[in-house]
Design a protein around this nucleic acid. Structure first.
Lengths: 209, 209
DNA sequence: TTTCTTCTACTGGTTTTCAGGTATTTTTCA
DNA sequence: TGAAAAATACCTGAAAACCAGTAGAAGAAA
Protein backbone atom coordinates (compact mmCIF):
# COMPACT_ATOMS: atom_id res chain seq x y z
CA UNK A 1 0.00 0.00 0.00
CA UNK A 2 1.22 3.47 -0.85
CA UNK A 3 1.71 6.02 1.83
CA UNK A 4 -1.42 7.88 2.83
CA UNK A 5 -1.36 11.37 1.36
CA UNK A 6 -2.31 13.37 4.40
CA UNK A 7 -3.34 16.98 4.82
CA UNK A 8 -3.54 18.87 8.10
CA UNK A 9 -6.01 21.70 8.56
CA UNK A 10 -5.85 23.85 11.66
CA UNK A 11 -6.16 27.56 12.30
CA UNK A 12 -2.98 27.50 14.40
CA UNK A 13 0.14 27.09 12.28
CA UNK A 14 1.91 25.86 15.39
CA UNK A 15 -0.43 22.90 15.62
CA UNK A 16 0.16 22.10 11.97
CA UNK A 17 3.91 22.12 12.52
CA UNK A 18 3.59 20.06 15.66
CA UNK A 19 1.54 17.41 13.93
CA UNK A 20 3.91 17.36 11.00
CA UNK A 21 6.80 16.68 13.33
CA UNK A 22 4.89 14.06 15.27
CA UNK A 23 3.83 12.19 12.17
CA UNK A 24 7.06 12.65 10.24
CA UNK A 25 8.35 9.22 11.14
CA UNK A 26 5.16 7.32 10.48
CA UNK A 27 5.88 4.68 7.87
CA UNK A 28 2.41 4.59 6.40
CA UNK A 29 1.67 8.24 5.85
CA UNK A 30 3.11 11.31 4.29
CA UNK A 31 2.13 14.88 5.03
CA UNK A 32 1.52 16.55 1.70
CA UNK A 33 0.07 19.81 2.92
CA UNK A 34 -1.02 22.02 5.79
CA UNK A 35 -3.71 24.70 5.69
CA UNK A 36 -5.01 27.19 8.17
CA UNK A 37 -8.10 28.03 6.15
CA UNK A 38 -10.88 26.02 4.60
CA UNK A 39 -10.75 27.74 1.23
CA UNK A 40 -7.07 26.91 0.89
CA UNK A 41 -7.80 23.25 1.48
CA UNK A 42 -10.67 23.18 -0.99
CA UNK A 43 -8.66 24.63 -3.84
CA UNK A 44 -5.84 22.21 -3.06
CA UNK A 45 -8.21 19.25 -3.22
CA UNK A 46 -9.25 20.30 -6.70
CA UNK A 47 -5.72 19.87 -7.97
CA UNK A 48 -4.06 17.08 -5.98
CA UNK A 49 -5.22 13.68 -4.71
CA UNK A 50 -5.52 13.27 -0.95
CA UNK A 51 -6.30 10.22 1.17
CA UNK A 52 -6.63 11.57 4.67
CA UNK A 53 -7.46 14.91 6.23
CA UNK A 54 -6.86 15.82 9.85
CA UNK A 55 -9.38 18.57 10.34
CA UNK A 56 -9.95 21.11 13.07
CA UNK A 57 -13.44 22.41 13.81
CA UNK A 58 -12.49 26.01 14.45
CA UNK A 59 -11.39 27.68 11.25
CA UNK A 60 -11.37 31.36 10.32
CA UNK A 61 -13.43 31.12 7.14
CA UNK A 62 -15.52 27.94 7.02
CA UNK A 63 -16.88 25.97 9.93
CA UNK A 64 -15.00 22.67 10.13
CA UNK A 65 -18.17 20.63 10.29
CA UNK A 66 -19.61 22.23 7.19
CA UNK A 67 -16.28 21.83 5.50
CA UNK A 68 -16.32 18.15 6.36
CA UNK A 69 -19.69 17.74 4.71
CA UNK A 70 -18.59 19.65 1.62
CA UNK A 71 -15.48 17.55 1.21
CA UNK A 72 -17.42 14.32 1.64
CA UNK A 73 -19.91 15.40 -1.00
CA UNK A 74 -17.27 16.15 -3.61
CA UNK A 75 -14.51 13.72 -2.68
CA UNK A 76 -16.24 10.83 -1.03
CA UNK A 77 -13.14 8.65 -0.91
CA UNK A 78 -11.21 10.99 1.36
CA UNK A 79 -11.08 9.93 4.97
CA UNK A 80 -11.59 12.75 7.44
CA UNK A 81 -10.51 12.66 11.05
CA UNK A 82 -11.63 15.51 13.27
CA UNK A 83 -8.95 16.76 15.60
CA UNK A 84 -10.39 19.37 17.88
CA UNK A 85 -10.56 20.82 21.34
CA UNK A 86 -14.33 21.03 21.35
CA UNK A 87 -15.80 18.78 23.96
CA UNK A 88 -19.42 19.60 23.28
CA UNK A 89 -21.47 16.57 22.68
CA UNK A 90 -23.57 18.11 19.94
CA UNK A 91 -20.52 19.00 17.88
CA UNK A 92 -19.16 15.49 18.09
CA UNK A 93 -22.47 13.97 17.11
CA UNK A 94 -22.77 16.37 14.23
CA UNK A 95 -19.46 15.34 12.74
CA UNK A 96 -20.64 11.75 12.33
CA UNK A 97 -23.64 13.02 10.45
CA UNK A 98 -21.32 14.96 8.22
CA UNK A 99 -19.24 11.97 7.27
CA UNK A 100 -16.19 12.18 9.52
CA UNK A 101 -14.50 8.88 10.31
CA UNK A 102 -13.52 9.77 13.82
CA UNK A 103 -13.05 12.44 16.43
CA UNK A 104 -10.02 13.03 18.60
CA UNK A 105 -9.23 15.65 21.17
CA UNK A 106 -6.01 17.54 20.63
CA UNK A 107 -4.54 16.24 23.84
CA UNK A 108 -4.77 12.68 22.57
CA UNK A 109 -1.62 10.62 22.65
CA UNK A 110 0.25 9.82 19.49
CA UNK A 111 -0.75 6.22 20.08
CA UNK A 112 -4.42 7.09 20.05
CA UNK A 113 -3.97 9.15 16.94
CA UNK A 114 -2.18 6.24 15.24
CA UNK A 115 -4.88 3.80 16.26
CA UNK A 116 -7.66 6.06 15.02
CA UNK A 117 -5.97 6.72 11.71
CA UNK A 118 -5.52 3.00 11.17
CA UNK A 119 -9.13 2.36 12.02
CA UNK A 120 -10.40 5.20 9.89
CA UNK A 121 -8.54 4.40 6.69
CA UNK A 122 -9.82 0.82 6.74
CA UNK A 123 -13.31 2.26 6.66
CA UNK A 124 -14.30 2.07 10.30
CA UNK A 125 -15.22 4.95 12.55
CA UNK A 126 -13.17 5.46 15.66
CA UNK A 127 -13.47 7.73 18.67
CA UNK A 128 -10.81 8.22 21.24
CA UNK A 129 -11.47 7.29 24.84
CA UNK A 130 -12.19 10.80 26.09
CA UNK A 131 -14.58 11.35 23.23
CA UNK A 132 -16.42 8.15 23.99
CA UNK A 133 -16.90 9.38 27.51
CA UNK A 134 -18.46 12.56 26.23
CA UNK A 135 -20.71 10.67 23.88
CA UNK A 136 -21.81 8.26 26.56
CA UNK A 137 -22.50 11.06 28.96
CA UNK A 138 -26.23 11.51 29.03
CA UNK A 139 -27.56 14.66 27.46
CA UNK A 140 -28.89 17.35 29.74
CA UNK A 141 -32.29 16.53 28.42
CA UNK A 142 -31.84 12.91 29.26
CA UNK A 143 -30.88 13.84 32.78
CA UNK A 144 -34.15 15.57 33.19
CA UNK A 145 -36.42 12.76 34.18
CA UNK A 146 -38.07 11.63 31.02
CA UNK A 147 -41.74 11.19 31.64
CA UNK A 148 -43.04 7.64 31.54
CA UNK A 149 -45.48 7.38 28.69
CA UNK A 150 -48.12 4.77 28.15
CA UNK A 151 -48.47 3.02 24.82
CA UNK A 152 -51.46 5.10 23.85
CA UNK A 153 -49.73 8.30 24.81
CA UNK A 154 -46.70 7.48 22.67
CA UNK A 155 -48.99 6.73 19.78
CA UNK A 156 -50.85 9.98 20.13
CA UNK A 157 -47.65 11.90 20.66
CA UNK A 158 -46.29 10.80 17.31
CA UNK A 159 -49.56 11.54 15.55
CA UNK A 160 -49.54 15.00 17.08
CA UNK A 161 -46.03 15.45 15.72
CA UNK A 162 -47.45 14.74 12.28
CA UNK A 163 -49.62 17.80 12.68
CA UNK A 164 -52.83 15.91 13.17
CA UNK A 165 -55.66 17.44 15.15
CA UNK A 166 -57.49 15.69 17.95
CA UNK A 167 -60.31 14.98 15.54
CA UNK A 168 -58.02 13.47 12.92
CA UNK A 169 -56.40 11.28 15.49
CA UNK A 170 -59.73 10.27 16.95
CA UNK A 171 -60.92 9.17 13.52
CA UNK A 172 -57.71 7.30 12.83
CA UNK A 173 -57.80 5.43 16.10
CA UNK A 174 -61.56 5.03 16.30
CA UNK A 175 -61.78 7.04 19.49
CA UNK A 176 -63.82 9.93 20.71
CA UNK A 177 -62.09 13.27 20.09
CA UNK A 178 -62.61 13.90 23.76
CA UNK A 179 -60.47 10.91 24.61
CA UNK A 180 -57.69 12.09 22.39
CA UNK A 181 -57.98 15.47 24.07
CA UNK A 182 -57.49 13.85 27.42
CA UNK A 183 -54.39 12.01 26.30
CA UNK A 184 -53.05 15.18 24.80
CA UNK A 185 -53.66 16.99 28.03
CA UNK A 186 -51.92 14.27 30.03
CA UNK A 187 -48.95 14.45 27.70
CA UNK A 188 -48.70 18.20 28.18
CA UNK A 189 -48.86 17.68 31.93
CA UNK A 190 -46.31 14.89 32.01
CA UNK A 191 -43.81 16.90 30.01
CA UNK A 192 -44.51 20.01 32.04
CA UNK A 193 -44.95 22.10 28.94
CA UNK A 194 -47.41 24.75 27.88
CA UNK A 195 -48.74 23.47 24.58
CA UNK A 196 -48.30 20.97 21.78
CA UNK A 197 -45.56 22.97 20.07
CA UNK A 198 -43.36 22.80 23.15
CA UNK A 199 -44.41 19.21 23.69
CA UNK A 200 -43.06 18.22 20.29
CA UNK A 201 -39.83 20.09 20.91
CA UNK A 202 -39.39 18.43 24.30
CA UNK A 203 -40.19 14.99 22.95
CA UNK A 204 -37.69 15.48 20.17
CA UNK A 205 -34.97 16.54 22.56
CA UNK A 206 -35.56 13.42 24.56
CA UNK A 207 -35.39 11.36 21.41
CA UNK A 208 -38.93 10.15 21.69
CA UNK A 209 -39.77 11.02 18.12
CA UNK B 1 -5.00 -9.26 31.32
CA UNK B 2 -7.63 -11.83 32.13
CA UNK B 3 -9.86 -13.20 29.48
CA UNK B 4 -12.88 -11.08 28.70
CA UNK B 5 -15.96 -12.63 30.23
CA UNK B 6 -18.31 -12.44 27.29
CA UNK B 7 -22.05 -12.99 27.01
CA UNK B 8 -23.99 -13.42 23.79
CA UNK B 9 -27.61 -12.31 23.54
CA UNK B 10 -29.64 -13.20 20.47
CA UNK B 11 -33.15 -14.42 19.93
CA UNK B 12 -31.90 -17.18 17.67
CA UNK B 13 -30.16 -19.97 19.60
CA UNK B 14 -28.45 -20.96 16.37
CA UNK B 15 -26.73 -17.58 16.19
CA UNK B 16 -25.60 -17.97 19.77
CA UNK B 17 -24.11 -21.34 19.02
CA UNK B 18 -22.49 -20.07 15.86
CA UNK B 19 -20.83 -17.20 17.65
CA UNK B 20 -19.70 -19.46 20.43
CA UNK B 21 -18.00 -21.72 17.93
CA UNK B 22 -16.47 -18.82 16.06
CA UNK B 23 -15.07 -17.21 19.18
CA UNK B 24 -14.08 -20.44 20.92
CA UNK B 25 -10.48 -20.17 19.86
CA UNK B 26 -10.01 -16.51 20.67
CA UNK B 27 -7.22 -16.19 23.17
CA UNK B 28 -8.46 -13.06 24.84
CA UNK B 29 -12.08 -13.90 25.53
CA UNK B 30 -14.22 -16.54 27.06
CA UNK B 31 -17.91 -17.06 26.45
CA UNK B 32 -19.54 -17.36 29.83
CA UNK B 33 -23.16 -17.32 28.76
CA UNK B 34 -25.74 -17.09 26.02
CA UNK B 35 -29.27 -15.77 26.31
CA UNK B 36 -32.18 -15.50 23.96
CA UNK B 37 -34.11 -13.11 26.18
CA UNK B 38 -33.34 -9.81 27.85
CA UNK B 39 -34.71 -10.78 31.23
CA UNK B 40 -32.45 -13.82 31.34
CA UNK B 41 -29.45 -11.63 30.71
CA UNK B 42 -30.44 -9.08 33.35
CA UNK B 43 -30.83 -11.64 36.09
CA UNK B 44 -27.50 -13.19 35.12
CA UNK B 45 -25.76 -9.82 35.36
CA UNK B 46 -27.00 -9.47 38.90
CA UNK B 47 -25.11 -12.56 39.95
CA UNK B 48 -21.98 -12.82 37.82
CA UNK B 49 -19.39 -10.33 36.55
CA UNK B 50 -19.30 -9.72 32.81
CA UNK B 51 -16.92 -7.66 30.68
CA UNK B 52 -18.44 -7.76 27.22
CA UNK B 53 -21.90 -8.32 25.79
CA UNK B 54 -22.64 -9.06 22.17
CA UNK B 55 -26.20 -7.88 21.89
CA UNK B 56 -28.86 -8.30 19.25
CA UNK B 57 -31.50 -5.61 18.75
CA UNK B 58 -34.43 -7.91 18.12
CA UNK B 59 -35.35 -9.75 21.28
CA UNK B 60 -38.65 -11.30 22.26
CA UNK B 61 -39.13 -9.47 25.56
CA UNK B 62 -37.09 -6.27 25.74
CA UNK B 63 -35.99 -4.08 22.87
CA UNK B 64 -32.23 -4.46 22.50
CA UNK B 65 -31.67 -0.72 22.47
CA UNK B 66 -33.57 -0.20 25.68
CA UNK B 67 -31.77 -3.16 27.16
CA UNK B 68 -28.47 -1.56 26.23
CA UNK B 69 -29.40 1.60 28.07
CA UNK B 70 -30.56 -0.33 31.12
CA UNK B 71 -27.35 -2.32 31.30
CA UNK B 72 -25.21 0.78 30.93
CA UNK B 73 -27.11 2.50 33.73
CA UNK B 74 -26.61 -0.33 36.18
CA UNK B 75 -23.30 -1.81 35.06
CA UNK B 76 -21.44 1.03 33.44
CA UNK B 77 -18.20 -0.90 33.10
CA UNK B 78 -19.63 -3.51 30.78
CA UNK B 79 -18.78 -3.03 27.13
CA UNK B 80 -21.67 -3.62 24.76
CA UNK B 81 -21.31 -4.40 21.10
CA UNK B 82 -24.47 -4.44 19.02
CA UNK B 83 -24.62 -7.31 16.57
CA UNK B 84 -27.68 -6.94 14.44
CA UNK B 85 -29.24 -7.25 11.04
CA UNK B 86 -30.96 -3.89 11.25
CA UNK B 87 -29.62 -1.52 8.66
CA UNK B 88 -31.82 1.42 9.58
CA UNK B 89 -29.86 4.52 10.23
CA UNK B 90 -31.98 5.66 13.14
CA UNK B 91 -31.46 2.42 15.02
CA UNK B 92 -27.71 2.62 14.65
CA UNK B 93 -27.60 6.22 15.76
CA UNK B 94 -29.79 5.40 18.73
CA UNK B 95 -27.43 2.72 19.99
CA UNK B 96 -24.61 5.23 20.37
CA UNK B 97 -26.88 7.39 22.46
CA UNK B 98 -27.63 4.38 24.59
CA UNK B 99 -24.02 3.67 25.35
CA UNK B 100 -23.08 0.89 22.96
CA UNK B 101 -19.42 0.74 22.00
CA UNK B 102 -20.01 -0.36 18.45
CA UNK B 103 -22.36 -1.76 15.87
CA UNK B 104 -21.77 -4.67 13.55
CA UNK B 105 -23.96 -6.34 10.99
CA UNK B 106 -24.35 -10.06 11.40
CA UNK B 107 -22.73 -10.73 8.07
CA UNK B 108 -19.50 -9.14 9.27
CA UNK B 109 -16.36 -11.17 8.97
CA UNK B 110 -14.69 -12.69 12.01
CA UNK B 111 -11.85 -10.27 11.39
CA UNK B 112 -14.13 -7.28 11.66
CA UNK B 113 -15.69 -8.68 14.78
CA UNK B 114 -12.26 -9.20 16.31
CA UNK B 115 -11.16 -5.70 15.39
CA UNK B 116 -14.29 -4.13 16.82
CA UNK B 117 -14.06 -6.10 20.05
CA UNK B 118 -10.45 -5.03 20.47
CA UNK B 119 -11.37 -1.43 19.80
CA UNK B 120 -14.38 -1.50 22.08
CA UNK B 121 -12.74 -3.00 25.14
CA UNK B 122 -9.98 -0.40 25.06
CA UNK B 123 -12.69 2.22 25.35
CA UNK B 124 -13.11 3.33 21.79
CA UNK B 125 -16.21 3.10 19.67
CA UNK B 126 -16.02 1.13 16.48
CA UNK B 127 -18.35 0.63 13.54
CA UNK B 128 -17.85 -1.90 10.82
CA UNK B 129 -17.45 -0.76 7.26
CA UNK B 130 -21.00 -1.44 6.13
CA UNK B 131 -22.34 0.39 9.14
CA UNK B 132 -20.19 3.40 8.41
CA UNK B 133 -21.68 3.50 4.95
CA UNK B 134 -25.16 3.59 6.40
CA UNK B 135 -24.23 6.29 8.86
CA UNK B 136 -22.63 8.45 6.20
CA UNK B 137 -25.64 8.15 3.95
CA UNK B 138 -27.58 11.38 4.21
CA UNK B 139 -30.89 11.27 5.99
CA UNK B 140 -34.05 11.54 3.94
CA UNK B 141 -34.73 14.82 5.67
CA UNK B 142 -31.39 16.20 4.66
CA UNK B 143 -32.17 15.35 1.06
CA UNK B 144 -35.41 17.27 1.19
CA UNK B 145 -34.57 20.82 0.36
CA UNK B 146 -34.59 22.80 3.55
CA UNK B 147 -36.69 25.92 3.24
CA UNK B 148 -34.84 29.20 3.25
CA UNK B 149 -35.78 31.15 6.34
CA UNK B 150 -35.37 34.82 7.01
CA UNK B 151 -33.80 36.05 10.22
CA UNK B 152 -37.13 36.99 11.70
CA UNK B 153 -38.62 33.66 10.80
CA UNK B 154 -35.82 31.74 12.47
CA UNK B 155 -36.25 33.83 15.55
CA UNK B 156 -39.96 33.24 15.69
CA UNK B 157 -39.53 29.57 14.92
CA UNK B 158 -37.38 29.03 17.96
CA UNK B 159 -39.73 31.00 20.17
CA UNK B 160 -42.61 28.90 18.91
CA UNK B 161 -40.62 25.81 19.84
CA UNK B 162 -40.46 27.13 23.38
CA UNK B 163 -44.21 26.93 23.51
CA UNK B 164 -44.76 30.64 23.31
CA UNK B 165 -47.99 31.98 21.88
CA UNK B 166 -48.18 34.63 19.21
CA UNK B 167 -49.03 37.17 21.88
CA UNK B 168 -46.07 36.21 24.05
CA UNK B 169 -43.76 36.47 21.10
CA UNK B 170 -45.26 39.77 20.01
CA UNK B 171 -44.65 41.21 23.46
CA UNK B 172 -41.12 39.89 23.55
CA UNK B 173 -40.21 41.32 20.17
CA UNK B 174 -42.30 44.48 20.42
CA UNK B 175 -44.44 43.51 17.46
CA UNK B 176 -48.11 43.31 16.77
CA UNK B 177 -49.47 39.82 17.45
CA UNK B 178 -50.83 40.02 13.93
CA UNK B 179 -47.34 40.31 12.56
CA UNK B 180 -46.20 37.30 14.49
CA UNK B 181 -49.21 35.48 13.13
CA UNK B 182 -48.13 36.31 9.62
CA UNK B 183 -44.62 35.01 10.20
CA UNK B 184 -46.01 31.89 11.72
CA UNK B 185 -48.22 31.42 8.71
CA UNK B 186 -45.31 31.89 6.34
CA UNK B 187 -43.28 29.34 8.28
CA UNK B 188 -46.08 26.81 8.04
CA UNK B 189 -46.28 27.46 4.31
CA UNK B 190 -42.56 27.24 3.72
CA UNK B 191 -42.28 23.94 5.52
CA UNK B 192 -45.39 22.66 3.80
CA UNK B 193 -46.89 21.54 7.07
CA UNK B 194 -50.31 21.81 8.60
CA UNK B 195 -49.68 23.45 11.95
CA UNK B 196 -47.08 24.47 14.48
CA UNK B 197 -46.80 21.00 15.97
CA UNK B 198 -45.71 19.56 12.64
CA UNK B 199 -43.60 22.64 12.00
CA UNK B 200 -41.57 22.00 15.13
CA UNK B 201 -41.15 18.35 14.23
CA UNK B 202 -40.00 19.22 10.72
CA UNK B 203 -37.62 21.92 11.92
CA UNK B 204 -36.12 19.49 14.40
CA UNK B 205 -35.59 16.85 11.77
CA UNK B 206 -33.75 19.35 9.67
CA UNK B 207 -31.63 20.34 12.62
CA UNK B 208 -32.90 23.87 12.68
CA UNK B 209 -33.65 23.81 16.38
C1' DT C 1 -34.27 53.89 -10.24
C1' DT C 2 -36.83 50.02 -10.24
C1' DT C 3 -37.54 45.51 -8.55
C1' DC C 4 -37.48 42.09 -5.07
C1' DT C 5 -37.43 40.57 -0.44
C1' DT C 6 -38.47 41.07 4.12
C1' DC C 7 -40.88 42.86 7.75
C1' DT C 8 -44.65 44.84 9.20
C1' DA C 9 -49.87 45.14 10.03
C1' DC C 10 -54.75 44.52 9.17
C1' DT C 11 -59.86 42.29 8.46
C1' DG C 12 -62.96 38.72 9.54
C1' DG C 13 -64.25 34.38 10.25
C1' DT C 14 -63.68 29.20 11.55
C1' DT C 15 -61.52 25.60 13.98
C1' DT C 16 -58.77 23.81 17.53
C1' DT C 17 -56.57 23.90 21.73
C1' DC C 18 -56.24 24.45 26.58
C1' DA C 19 -57.56 24.26 31.46
C1' DG C 20 -60.44 23.07 34.98
C1' DG C 21 -62.78 19.12 36.28
C1' DT C 22 -65.31 14.07 36.75
C1' DA C 23 -66.21 9.26 35.85
C1' DT C 24 -66.68 4.49 33.87
C1' DT C 25 -64.56 0.56 31.84
C1' DT C 26 -60.60 -2.27 30.66
C1' DT C 27 -55.94 -4.09 31.44
C1' DT C 28 -52.26 -5.39 34.03
C1' DC C 29 -49.89 -7.63 37.41
C1' DA C 30 -48.71 -8.82 42.12
C1' DT D 1 -58.66 -12.04 42.78
C1' DG D 2 -58.22 -7.38 43.98
C1' DA D 3 -55.83 -3.11 43.60
C1' DA D 4 -53.53 -0.05 40.60
C1' DA D 5 -52.72 1.77 36.17
C1' DA D 6 -54.36 2.84 31.72
C1' DA D 7 -57.69 3.90 28.48
C1' DT D 8 -61.89 5.62 27.57
C1' DA D 9 -65.42 9.41 27.61
C1' DC D 10 -67.76 13.68 28.88
C1' DC D 11 -68.69 19.16 30.07
C1' DT D 12 -67.82 24.15 29.58
C1' DG D 13 -65.87 28.38 28.27
C1' DA D 14 -62.04 31.17 27.15
C1' DA D 15 -57.90 31.55 24.53
C1' DA D 16 -55.30 30.63 20.81
C1' DA D 17 -54.44 28.98 16.38
C1' DC D 18 -55.57 28.64 11.64
C1' DC D 19 -57.28 30.25 6.98
C1' DA D 20 -57.30 33.50 3.17
C1' DG D 21 -56.44 37.59 1.39
C1' DT D 22 -54.36 42.36 1.27
C1' DA D 23 -50.99 45.94 1.58
C1' DG D 24 -47.63 49.63 3.03
C1' DA D 25 -42.64 50.61 4.45
C1' DA D 26 -37.81 49.70 4.57
C1' DG D 27 -33.78 47.88 2.66
C1' DA D 28 -31.01 45.44 -0.56
C1' DA D 29 -29.80 44.35 -5.05
C1' DA D 30 -29.90 44.82 -10.03
Amino acid sequence: MNKLRTVIVDDHPIVIEGLKTLLKNEANLEIVGGFSEGTGLLSYLNTKPVDLILLDVTLPDINGMDLCQMIKERFSTITILILSNHTERSIIMQTIQNGASGYLLKNSSLDELRQCIASAVTGNICYSKEVVEIISRPTKNQLRNTPQLTRREKQILSLLAEGKTSQNIAQELFLSPLTVDTHRRNLIQKFEVKNVAELIAAAHQQQLL
